[in-house]
Nucleic acid binder design. Structure first.
Lengths: 148, 148
DNA sequence: AATTTTACTTGCGAATTGCAAGTAACCCTT
DNA sequence: AAGGGTTACTTGCAATTCGCAAGTAAAATT
């Protein structure tokens, strides 16, 4: 529990899980403006506690991709519940209705999230975080809903 | 999400929800040793964001009981998932097996937790936190399990 | 009336954080 | 193959926050 007792660790995990961020630069530019020394420190700590791990990208030796370990993937329920709570009680801009839809399909969404992280598919969980205009679908959540 | 971005807020909420703590003094003596000025500040912040509220005890004008609002009660799933994650991946002393039992009865445990908080019954959710020797049962979790 | 209990403040040194700048390795272009 | 750009950090310092010890005020107990 003490791993999340700071301003940034939870936000980094959210970016990792919900948005599809992987690299130092992506986290750094993630809106809230984390200082680079703090970001480096938090990534180290999360790695030291076995929640994430770093791997150098094969095609580009500069880039380090941060990914969730199994221990990190197991935090998915926590993050999802936080997302749901935020959607219900805070104004999170858009995507409230989508998140609250997810609540009904909690187990399916979690299974899909876990599956995607295991096979290193880091498509954003929420479409509002897919701002690059590629139009990728955000996790097939609608499809999941219908397939019950 | 930024409400929990510090070392103590989550711990206070855990004490409030899982242990049955209500008063300033209980939080202060809660093991980890929070400074009184920080505790006062965090209680104020949690109250300002509508997660808890303070009420003076009727029978003793000195005591202030901190209680969860509906918004705070809605954080129960997050805390439960954190508890489960901790039981699985960290050494939490005792009660690991009990917490992992709760995972199977997630909905029942949550319903019971919400019910108890609504009617202001602050019996500790976990027996390891009932150290006063009164021998009160810790939330009837066994009973819940059998009543499926 | 005096002491104790409870819930806080206040002041100050210590630790943490944020900001700006710098560095090193790697890639890409010419 | 040399220069410039990109990525992932580190370093130094100022500003904020935190932690500790002590103090205060109101209510209860003796």
């Amino acid at each position: 529990m003490e791993h999340f007792g700071d301003r940034w660790s939870l936000l980094i995990l959210r970016d990792l899980m919900v948005r599809g961020y992987k690299t130092f630069k992506e986290f750094q530019q993630s809106g809230e403006g984390i200082a680079t020394n703090i970001l480096a420190n938090r990534l180290q700590r999360l790695e030291a506690t076995g929640i994430i791990f770093a791997e150098v990208e094969a095609t580009d030796g500069r880039k380090v991709n941060y990914r969730l370990t199994e221990k990190g993937i197991d935090l998915a329920p926590v993050l999802l519940d936080l997302l749901i709570w935020g959607a219900r009680h805070e104004e999170t801009g858009a995507s409230c209705t989508l998140v609250l839809e997810m609540e009904k399909n909690r187990e399916e969404v979690l299974a899909e999230t876990r599956r995607r992280w295991r096979e290193r598919d880091s498509t954003p969980l929420l479409p509002s975080f897919d701002k690059d205009g590629t139009g990728r679908k955000p996790a097939r959540t609608q499809r999941i809903e219908k397939s019950r």
